[in-house]
Design a binder for these strands. Structure first.
Length: 742
DNA sequence: AGCACGCCGACT
DNA sequence: GTCGGCGTGCTC
C-alpha cells in the first residue's frame, strides 16, 4: 500500500505545517504549491501543500485532505520565496502563504434551527437557560447564520457553548459552508483608455535619464539580477525611467511589478501606466473587493497581464517571467508590514528578483541611509537625476528659531507675517504638523536641548510617575530635569502630543477664508480624502492643515507657502531613525511648495535650528545629510553597519512580561558564540508603548554583524527559552529589521 | 488565531 | 452544588 502524505501550511500561527493523508483519487493532482481544503480541529480551512512524501506506518491520527481548493497553484518560485520569508522574518509559513494568497472563499460553520421548542419547553428553557432562548430567537429567521452573526445578534458571550448544548438537545444543527466566489468579472475593454505610447515617450530624455535607462535596459537584457538606486528630486523624471524600463522588459517578453507606497494617494501614476500599457496592466490594493482582487490575481496568473501596479503585498503577485520590479519612494515606511508576517516589501523585492533574474529599481528623492550606503559601496548601482525637468526652482526654505518666541501662539511672528502676506496675495497655504508625538519628551525652552541617552543617542522619555527620564532602547534612566544642564535655564517644557491649536488659530485670525484639516481622523470615510483634496486643489479652500498624509505625492499648483509648525516632534521620537524621518518628511513637505507658477516659500519652526536634519533639508542637501548621519550610524553600530532585531514581550501581568524579557536576554547571552559575530543585546526595557489593551509590553534589541545569522540565533533562543520554561504567560513577537520601535 | 479544557469565585 | 470567568495548550 503506497499511501502519500502532504505537509500543509494552514493560515494559523503555528510553526510547522500539518500532515494529512492524500486520498488516492487526488494523488495525481496534488503537488507542492497546490491549495487544498483541510480539516483543522472542527473547522475546514484552505492551506498550501509544502511537501509530498510517501507515508509509512499506520494511518491512525492523520486526517485526510478534503479536496483541491478552487484557487490556483503556487509556482515553485513563490513557494521558495515564502520559505525564505518565513525563515528570515521568523513568521509562521502558513501566515506567510496566507499573506501571499488571493482571498479564499470563506469556509465557515453555519447554524440552522432544526426544531422549535414547544411552549412548555420554552418556559422551562427561559427559566433555566435564558441565553438559549436568545440564541434560538436569533436563529428563528430560517436562514443559517454564522457564529459571528449570532454573537452580534444576541450580544452574548460563550456562544459556542450554548450552541453546543442546543445541538445536543436537537434544536439546532450546523454544517460547513463555503461562501461562493463571485463569478469572474469580465473587464469591459471599452473603459480602458487607448494605449498611447507616443504621448509620453515622445519626450526627449535628459542626459541623466538616458544613462539610467540604458544601464537598466542592458541589465534586463543580461538576465542577471541587479539593483539600481534612482536618486532624484520630485519632478526629475523618475517615473519616465520606470515606464521605459518596464516597456523595454515587456518588449523582450518579460513582465513587471511596480510597487507604490499607497495606491489611493497616487491615482496619477495609475493613469500613466494605463495610458502606456492599456489593459495589459492590473492594480492590486487593499481597497479592492475580494472579487475584484481575485479576478486580477487570476488574470495575472494566466499571463493576461504584463504590468502589476500595487502596494506592499503586490510583491507577491503571481507574475511569471519577471523582468523588472520598481519600488517607488523606496524609503516609505509602508513597505514594512507592521503585523505578522512582518516583511519588508523592498527587501522581498530584491530577494525575489535575485531568484527570477530580474532587475530592481529603487527610486527616491530621499533614499534610506541603508539604500544609499549600498549604492555608495557598489552593492547597488546609483543613478542621479539632479534637476527638475519642468524648470520650477526648489522653494526657498527658512528655519525659524522658536526659542525666541515667548507667547502661546503656535506661530512665530515671522510665520504670522508670512501667512498674512500670503493670504493677501490670494495664495494657498499648507500648514504641516506632525501630531504623532505619542511620547512625551522634555526640552529646555531657552536653549532647545533635549535629553538623550549617552549609550544610544535616542531621546529620553519622561515618566510622570517616577519623575525619571528613561531610554527605551537600553533602559538607562536619570532624574528628570529641573534646570537645564547646558544653559542653566529653568524653563523646562514637557512637550505633549497634539497641537490642535493650529486650526483654532487660523479660524480665529482668518475667519474670511476656509480651512480644511487632513489627517487620519478626517479621512477615515471612504472617498472623503479625495473630496477634501479636490476642494483644496480647485481652490475652494485656502488653508490645508495636515499630517504626514499631505506630504505625499499631491501636486498642488497654487501653494505659495508651507509652514512646518513644529519640526521637533519627529526629531525627538525615541528612535535612532528619528533624524532620517525628519529629513524625509521635511523634504517632502517642502516639495509641495512652488510647483506651479507661484514661487514657493517654506518656513520650518523649531527649537533646535542647528539639528543636521533641518539644516540639510533647508538647503535640499541629501548628500550632506547622509554624510553626517552615516557617521552617527557607524559610531553607534546602527544599520547599515549592523543588523537589528527587536523582540517584543507581552503579557497580561507586568511581572511576567519583564521576567520573560529578562529570560530572553540571559538565554541570548548564554548562547552567544562565534556563529553570530558582533552580537550585542540591548535591554530589556519597557516598550515605548508600554501597555496596549491591558497587555504590558517589554522589548529588547539584538544587534548583529551579518544578515543571515541573526534569525537562526533568535530561533535557537526561543527554543531554549521554551524548554527552560522561562517564557510562561508571555508572548513573543519578533521584528527583523524593525522600522519603528513602538 | 480560535476553541476546548480546566480550575476558581458568585449565585440558586 | 452549578454557571461562567479567564488562563493554558493544541491544532495533523
Amino acid at each position: 500500500l503506497n499511501m502519500l502524505k502532504a505537509d500543509v501550511a494552514v493560515p494559523i500561527p503555528i510553526d510547522t505545517p500539518l500532515t494529512y493523508l492524500i486520498p488516492s483519487e487526488l494523488q495525481e493532482s496534488i503537488g507542492v504549491g497546490t491549495q487544498v481544503v483541510v480539516p483543522v480541529r472542527n473547522k475546514v480551512v484552505t492551506g498550501v501543500v509544502c511537501d509530498v512524501a510517501p507515508h509509512e506506518g499506520d494511518v491512525a491520527g492523520l486526517k485526510s485532505i478534503r479536496e483541491i481548493a478552487s484557487a490556483p497553484r503556487f509556482a515553485s518560485e513563490l513557494m521558495k520565496l515564502a520559505r525564505w520569508i518565513s525563515e528570515y522574518y521568523i513568521a509562521p509559513i502558513g501566515e506567510v502563504l496566507g499573506a501571499m494568497s488571493p482571498p479564499h472563499p470563506r469556509l465557515r460553520r453555519v447554524y440552522r434551527l432544526l426544531r422549535k421548542p414547544g411552549s412548555l419547553e420554552l418556559e422551562i428553557m427561559r427559566a433555566s437557560h435564558p441565553e438559549h432562548v436568545c440564541v434560538l430567537e436569533a436563529l428563528s429567521g430560517d436562514r443559517p447564520l454564522t457564529l459571528e452573526t449570532i454573537r452580534r445578534k444576541t450580544r452574548l458571550k460563550g456562544i459556542a457553548r450554548h450552541l453546543g448544548s442546543l445541538e445536543e438537545g436537537g434544536y439546532v444543527s450546523h454544517q460547513v459552508f463555503a461562501g461562493k466566489r463571485r463569478g469572474r468579472r469580465t473587464k469591459s475593454r471599452a473603459d480602458s483608455p487607448p494605449v498611447d505610447t507616443e504621448l509620453d515617450s515622445g519626450f526627449q530624455l535628459t542626459q541623466e535619464q538616458s544613462e539610467a535607462y540604458e544601464g537598466i535596459a542592458a541589465a534586463i537584457d543580461r538576465g542577471r539580477s541587479a539593483t539600481f538606486l534612482l536618486f532624484g528630486v520630485t519632478g526629475s523624471g523618475k517615473t519616465e525611467v520606470y515606464l521605459r524600463s518596464i516597456d523595454h522588459a515587456v518588449k523582450k517578453g518579460r513582465r513587471a511589478v511596480y510597487l507604490v507606497p499607497e495606491i489611493g494617494l497616487t491615482p496619477q501614476i495609475m493613469d500613466r501606466v494605463r495610458r502606456r500599457f492599456g489593459d495589459r496592466c492590473g492594480v492590486l490594493h487593499s481597497r479592492l473587493s475580494s472579487g475584484e482582487r481575485y479576478s486580477t490575481w487570476a488574470d495575472i496568473q494566466s499571463g493576461r497581464i504584463d504590468v502589476v501596479v500595487g502596494a506592499r503585498s503586490a510583491i507577491f503577485a503571481p507574475v511569471e517571467n519577471l523582468g523588472v520590479i520598481i519600488v517607488d519612494e523606496e524609503h516609505d515606511a509602508s513597505y514594512k508590514q507592521q503585523e505578522s508576517p512582518r516583511y519588508n516589501a523592498r527587501e522581498v523585492a530584491i530577494v525575489r528578483a535575485k531568484e527570477a533574474g530580474a532587475v530592481v529599481i529603487l527610486g527616491s528623492a530621499t533614499p534610506t541611509i541603508e539604500s544609499y550606503h549600498n549604492a555608495v559601496t557598489g552593492k547597488y548601482r546609483l543613478h542621479e537625476l539632479p534637476e527638475r525637468i519642468s524648470g520650477g526652482d526648489l522653494p526657498a526654505v527658512s528655519v525659524i528659531d522658536m526659542r525666541t518666541t515667548r507667547d502661546e501662539s503656535p506661530f512665530s511672528k515671522e510665520a504670522q507675517g508670512s501667512i498674512g502676506a500670503s493670504v493677501g496675495r490670494e495664495e494657498q497655504i499648507l500648514l504641516f504638523l506632525n501630531r504623532r508625538g505619542f511620547s512625551n519628551y522634555v526640552q529646555c525652552r531657552e536653549c532647545g536641548i533635549v535629553p538623550r541617552c549617552r549609550n544610544c543617542q535616542v531621546s529620553l522619555t519622561y515618566h510622570l510617575g517616577r519623575k525619571v527620564l528613561r531610554c527605551h532602547y537600553c533602559g538607562y534612566a536619570e532624574r528628570g530635569w529641573e534646570t537645564c544642564p547646558k544653559c542653566g535655564g529653568t524653563n523646562i517644557e514637557y512637550v505633549g502630543s497634539g497641537t490642535q491649536k493650529v486650526e483654532e488659530y487660523i479660524s480665529e485670525n482668518f475667519a474670511e477664508v476656509s480651512c480644511v484639516r487632513f489627517d487620519r481622523d478626517s479621512t477615515r470615510r471612504k472617498g472623503s480624502a479625495e473630496s477634501l483634496l479636490s476642494d483644496f486643489s480647485n481652490g475652494l479652500v485656502r488653508f490645508l492643515v495636515g499630517t504626514q498624509m499631505v506630504a505625499k505625492g499631491h501636486d498642488f499648483r497654487k501653494v505659495g507657502l508651507v509652514v512646518v509648525v513644529n519640526a521637533d516632534v519627529s526629531m525627538n521620537l525615541p528612535d535612532f531613525r528619528a533624524g532620517e524621518r525628519t529629513f524625509q518628511i521635511l523634504t517632502q513637505v517642502a516639495g509641495r511648495a512652488g510647483r506651479g507658477e507661484v514661487p514657493g516659500k517654506v518656513l520650518i519652526q523649531t527649537f533646535n535650528p542647528d539639528h543636521h536634519s533641518l539644516a540639510h533639508a533647508a538647503c535640499h542637501d541629501f548628500k550632506g545629510f547622509y554624510e553626517q548621519e552615516v557617521l552617527m550610524r557607524r559610531d553607534l553600530r546602527y544599520p547599515p553597519f549592523s543588523r537589528l532585531a527587536r523582540i517584543v514581550v507581552e503579557s497580561r501581568r507586568q511581572e511576567s512580561a519583564k521576567r520573560a524579557a529578562e529570560g530572553f536576554v540571559s538565554v541570548a547571552k548564554a548562547l552567544r558564540d562565534e556563529s553570530i559575530p558582533g552580537l550585542d543585546v540591548m535591554g530589556p526595557s519597557r516598550a515605548p508603548l508600554s501597555k496596549i489593551r491591558n497587555n504590558y509590553r517589554w522589548h529588547l534589541l539584538l544587534k548583529g554583524e551579518e544578515r543571515k545569522s541573526l534569525s537562526p540565533f533568535i530561533r535557537r533562543c526561543l527554543r531554549e527559552l521554551d524548554s527552560r520554561r522561562l517564557a510562561e504567560a508571555a508572548r513573543f513577537s519578533i521584528d527583523i529589521d524593525p522600522q519603528v520601535m513602538m
